[in-house]
Amino acid sequence: MIMKILRYAIQHIIRKPFQSLSVVLILSVTFLIAQLFVVVSVGTTKVLEFFEQQPQVMIFFKDETLEDQILQIKAELEKSPEISDVTYISKAQAVEIYKDRSARLFPDKPELLEFVTADMLPASLGVSALSVNKLYDVSAQFEGNQFVESVIFQEDLVVELTRFTSALRIGGAVLISVLLFTVVVLMAIVVSNNIKSFSSEIEVMRLVGAGSWYIRLPFIIDGILFAVIATTLSTIGLYMLIPTVEAFSMNFIAAVDLISNHMEFVLYTGGATVLFGSVFTIITNYLATWNAMRT
């Protein structure tokens, strides 16, 4: 029985090849955009987390400032209950961080690392606080300080990034909703056409006492087949595009490793897309079949 129903479903697809192809293509594009949106969403979340975890005020010290003087400032800052964390990065540690990031960002340019020494980079204190106001205070306190070269206050960046991430998520959700709605309409048309092209078979099926599900199931299975083919194609596309997306993001945020394990990420995203796609097309084709057979 299952094989017969599957055979009917495949017949539907074969009888209207171009129609089937158009459904698979639009589904593939929709799922690929959804998957890329997941990549961007995961990426921006990681970037946001990265900046949130970074010290919100960075105090860079002049070369002549002694380590003891810096550690004394650190100790004084730590006394304040409104300051949550103070991290000291020595000149040597700064070089290590620089080398590590440069090696990741420009793996083919080792000469960039050769001439960098500890003397060239400043020691710094990273300060995180419980309130933004305290950060303003810290920032103001050290601006123009005799030991301080410069102060960087990242509060604006985190706020802007949060806004950008929210806007991106809303925009992406709207885009994907529009695409999914297009797919729903397209699949409803396809199911309706398929039912029309199989009207004589359906009429005979009804006449000889075939159950309602026996008649409807092949059309619903069509949807699952479309979803599986389309999500497989979109997942292959995703696998091929991830290195490009990551390389592009490295131009802006080299410190953040967007997707640590490509294969694992693609498998999880692909699996979730297959599941979502199947459920989505089952519901869509169920409703479309119900609507088309009602008339």
Partner: peptide, 29 residues
């Protein structure tokens, strides 16, 4: 399945053989 029916226009499936047309009634049930 308890009441068979035939029509003036036969309602046969043109792409199926005689054997398949008759078997179809059994297959779909």
């Amino acid at each position: 399945r308890n009441i068979g029916m035939i029509f003036q226009d036969f309602k046969l499936l043109q792409r199926q053989t005689v054997e398949e047309n008759v078997g179809f009634a059994l297959e779909v049930t």
